[in-house]
Amino acid sequence: MHNPVTGPVFAIYYPVFAAFAVPANLVAIVILSRGRCGLSRCITLYLVSMAVSDLLVVITAVILNRIRGIYFQLSFLTHTTGCSITAVLTYTSRDSSVWLTVAFTFDRFVAICWQKLKNKYCNEKTAAAVIGTVCAFSFLRNIPCYFMYEPLYIIGNVHWFCSIRSAFYTSTGWAAYEWLDRILTPCLPFLLIFVLNALTIRSILAANRARRRLCGKSKGENRSDPEVENRKKSIVLLLSISGSFLMLWVTYVVNVFYVRFASGSYFAGSNFNDPRFILQESGYMLQLWSCCTNTCIYVGTQRKFREELKKAVIYPFDLIRKLSKN
């Protein structure tokens, strides 16, 4: 788990980020759960699960790790057991968020590119099974993280703070585990999302060209094709979600490769004049932003989501007006 850095920039940035990200994900969960956005139950399940996992990332990685480390350096979470559990929950929620994005991307890939498999795979039952499997696997995979730490201080038989065990740097088993962790998150998801998006776009462009030929559409006509319009809406939502994921994680991925093949270790401490520190912290900050961008994407791309959001904003004022009349 990345140790929180100190400084006025981070002391301001992380609370502001949490103040925006927590309500944004809560709003997304409530509105999507109501099922009034014109999306299928399958898509809705994926989007709700992604919002829940993003909310958990904000709570564990931002509030319980970074904000707590800056403002509340001594608390029950400072005990070795507390920070070890926090590390497991942070990694679990992070992996769930990443792989649910991959699962959603694959679901849309099947729906658009594999019409024969669409009815069997792209349904509510399969989506629930995939979501449950992703979350369970993410938790089980990160259980070893609990045993990765040892107490930094022992005062009166009380274990304080978390320090990575020395065996982590010398053991072949831990080295293999760390490599597997970096491959599974974020390198493999990064590659899968990029490839699936490329294949989906290629399939949509080919299908649109074929449909125009079959419809005998001439250049002078300006008729709208419902099938083409539906494909456009699907690809806009898909590319917005997965595209923002790729852009916000790319700095983190670059830093992972830099540490592995050039530096050898992550930067410790705070030094705004060191390029390694800037690269590392920029990667973490942008990665966390991926946990609150989906709500903005829904507002920008989904008309019915905007309508439901307007109703939610107006509702308290309507309630006050009705109560004042009574």
Rank of each mutant, 00 (worst) to 15 (best):
F168T: 15
I154S: 06
C135H: 01
L180M: 14
T170L: 05
I164M: 11
M148R: 07
V134L: 11
A127I: 03
R165E: 05
Y153I: 07
G132D: 03
N142I: 11
I154Q: 07
A127Y: 02
I143W: 01
F168G: 04
H159M: 14
A136M: 15
I131G: 03
V134D: 02
S138V: 03
V130D: 07
I155G: 00
I131Y: 03
I164F: 04
I155E: 07
A136D: 07
A167C: 10
I155V: 10
H159T: 12
F168L: 08
G132H: 06
P144R: 02
C145H: 13
V134M: 09
R165T: 09
F147I: 03
A128M: 09
A176N: 14
W160I: 02
W174P: 04
F147E: 09
C145V: 15
T172I: 07
S166N: 13
D181W: 12
F161E: 09
R165A: 11
R141W: 14
V130I: 15
R182H: 13
F139K: 08
A176Q: 12
A129K: 15
F139Q: 06
I131Q: 05
F137R: 00
A167W: 01
D181K: 15
G156E: 02
S166W: 00
V130C: 10
A127V: 04
T170H: 06
C162T: 02
C162L: 05
Y153S: 01
S163G: 10
M148C: 07
V130T: 14
T172C: 00
G132C: 12
M148K: 04
A175D: 10
A128K: 07
L152Y: 05
T172N: 12
S163I: 08
F137K: 05
A176F: 13
F137M: 13
C135L: 12
F161R: 09
R165G: 05
Y146G: 08
E178G: 03
W160F: 05
G132V: 08
C162A: 02
Y177K: 05
I155K: 09
G173N: 06
F161G: 00
A127C: 07
L140V: 11
D181N: 15
V158I: 15
N142E: 10
L180N: 11
C145Y: 12
V158K: 14
